[in-house]
């Protein structure tokens, strides 16, 4: 899984650099987010601008991160979600679970 991590305004921002999140790389993403949380980085924004496809395992990896972050009084939000990817969150009603922002600035303004 290609990704970058930046610390911005107290948030760990994960920039996903893959077009697809599926069963081939979602396990790696899940483990990466959980590792961050275990290190105390519980306020996370996942920037998914590059992602044009996500499957059930990708949604599961993000949900896992969300649950673990909130269990430690943190948060996990999403930024830059393409319409087709957003439709997967809507189909599963996960758009009610995650805060999903149009861009990173909006995410940082609303979450900080």
């Amino acid at each position: 899984m290609k990704l970058n991590l930046e610390k911005v305004k107290g948030f760990s921002v994960i920039f996903i650099k893959e077009e697809r999140i599926d069963a081939h790389n979602s396990g790696e993403l899940k483990a990466y987010i959980l590792h961050l949380i275990e290190q105390g980085e519980v306020n996370i924004i996942v920037q998914i601008e590059c992602v044009r496809f996500i499957d059930s395992s990708g949604l599961g990896a993000l949900l896992s991160g969300y649950k673990h972050a909130t269990a430690k009084s943190g948060k996990l939000a999403l930024a830059c979600c393409k319409q087709q990817v957003l439709s997967m969150f809507e189909l599963t009603r996960l758009n009610r679970v995650f805060d999903i922002y149009a861009d990173l600035n909006e995410a940082l303004e609303n979450e900080t």
Binding site: D55, S56, S57, L59, G60, A61, L63, S64, L91, T92, R93, L94, V97
Partner: peptide, 16 residues
């Protein structure tokens, strides 16, 4: 059928 009000990490593939 997954309970969308109590989302879980797995079980969505067949639902899709």
């Amino acid at each position: 059928v997954p309970d969308l009000d109590q989302p879980k990490e797995g079980g969505m593939g067949l639902y899709f």
